[in-house]
Write a protein that binds this DNA or RNA. Sequence first.
DNA 1: AGCACGCCGACT
DNA 2: GTCGGCGTGCTC
Length: 681
Amino acid sequence: MRVALDVPLPGLFDYRCEHSVAVGTRVIVPFGRRHMIGVVVETPAEPALDQASIKAVEQVLDDLPPLPADWLALAGFAAQYYQRPLGEVMLPALPASLRKVSAYQGPRSAGGPVRRSDKRRAAAPATVASEPAPNLNPQQAEAVRAIAAIQGHRTVLLHGVTGSGKTEVYLHAAQSVLERGGQVLFLVPEINLTPQLEQSLRSRLGGPEGPAALAVLHSGLAEGERLRAWLHAQRGQAQVLLGTRLSIFTPLPRLGLIIVDEEHDASYKQQDGLRYSARDLAVWLGRDRGIPVVLGSATPSLESWYHAERGHYLKLSLAQRAREVELPKIRLVDTRRLALQQGFSPQLLDALGARLEHGEQSLIFINRRGYAPVLSCSSCGWISQCPRCSAYTVLHRASGRMAGHRQRLHCHHCGYQAPPPAACPDCGDQDLRPMGRGTQRVEEHLAEFFPQARIARIDADSTRRKGSAAELFAQVHAGQIDILVGTQMVAKGHDFTNLGLVGVLNADAMLFAHDFRAPERLFAQLMQVAGRAGRHVRGGEVIVQTDYPEQPVYQALLRHNYAGFAQYSLAERESIGLPPYAYQALLTAEARELAVALEFLGRARKVLQDLAADCGASLALYDPIPLRVVRVANIERAQLLVESRHRPSLQACLALWMPRLPEAAEGMRVRYQLEVDPLEI
DNA sequence: AGCACGCCGACT
DNA sequence: GTCGGCGTGCTC
């Protein structure tokens, strides 16, 4: 039999076994000096290897029924598409206790916890108050009808502005699948940000026999909880599986609908190991299972918008806000000729003052944590730098009650920390100054401008302690905070009922990121953060400070015009041949010295060039280039971008290329990884 | 990736 | 004398 194992080696491994074993069965096999759990994926009559080097299976695991064929097909597709060994897809997709020999405790272990949890779960629904379903507006009703009318597979792009009631459409679509006995897979970017959604699913879905059984799956769960949810779903007991990207790999025997909320969100892309996009796999899975897939967003990815415009996806729009509150008014403040006070325009300060007077809350959004992005010498221009990375260190004010105003330099790339020097290491001058502003410094300035205001800061630093994010958000919701300062953490999900004003500082920094998706991400992020304003308060307002108000992204934002922005951006992408008009793959190399990484990529490029010529595929191969932050923790990195207008050609070439990379790395101390459909280049 | 083997420096 | 540094080689 041929077994998939979680090792970074291409291909499968042959083993002997006395009795016949079904494909999809887990087995314990000897591998080198180790014992590993693998998945049987083929049972060919003849092994591909000579008999002598084949070992026997040690144990056939029968604690679970074999993994189903459709699950194996999804894993197989992902392995092929993302160019990784099958075992590296299949095994990490299973809960640890199902893939680790050390955790395996015999056939009863997997059965026990679920029965216990069923008892607990059976009692839970009584405590959940049933919410009445609000009436659908005509657009919502039309969307629900259109989704219900789908026979077999169709991907739907549900484009709905913030507050237009996409969730209501999801709930109706899910309910009708549940009534036919199907299961629903509901993907969200981050589970912690959607307690309200979980609450709605629990209280609203179900029938006369009671609420629908809901399983929740995300990486923050303890192993036992994760196993329980996975088994619940795999046995068909859970009717709804709500989870983050990893949930896409859960077997769901009666899957009838997949919903991907906030489909544009980068969290759907795994950034290490198997670099899959759960959204893209959801579309593939929907097609494979012959069921509808609903992608929802206020700011769809340009890829999804493109497919919808071309008619590949069914486009459904929710243009009006469900509740009778108008969209927030967006103002661009041109900061080029303004005298700013500590980075604040007079317009923003006035607006903050006015909201304070009215007892309304405000949010200052700045996507930069810490006190100041750099510490600099005022006489010679020295700038604080990480000794291990090609990056500046960020000045932080130490946290904790006893820390006072002590400051430290932090590297955001490698975690290096050091106290700031007393004098400039280059010229000895003692006048070292923080340059620029991060959330901590903004918080400090706001306290000076508005001494009477209650100010809170929410960023990765202030929420490091487990549960502190929830605490801070609870204070905001309880009205104990007047001004909230935060990074993108505050942009997602939260429905602030008394928030009237959003101020955006330093938005331009996101435009300068020289990634071609920067404007798209900026637009999505600003729309999202703008959506926090005036959800319940009348006269909601957003003030964006910028040096480039004429930029198309800001002009589109001003008019809440996603469609216009998408049309403009797609035309631009088409004219220069970027995704979605081209398909990309990125080979990244790491070595002690940049020259080694570049040399490897140069050789790899040559190999690919020859391969493409041989099979007549037209690929665009760029020159290997150092990453923008070339050195991180003393490792230097470079990348090679490969592009094609024709996805199958790219796929075919990558499959031929991968096995030839070891020869390109011959004699070099270099590590490399390939990313298909990279989000950042 | 693990986990071996293997061949050179500083310790009881 | 050996404890241990990490180079390199293999795993059905």
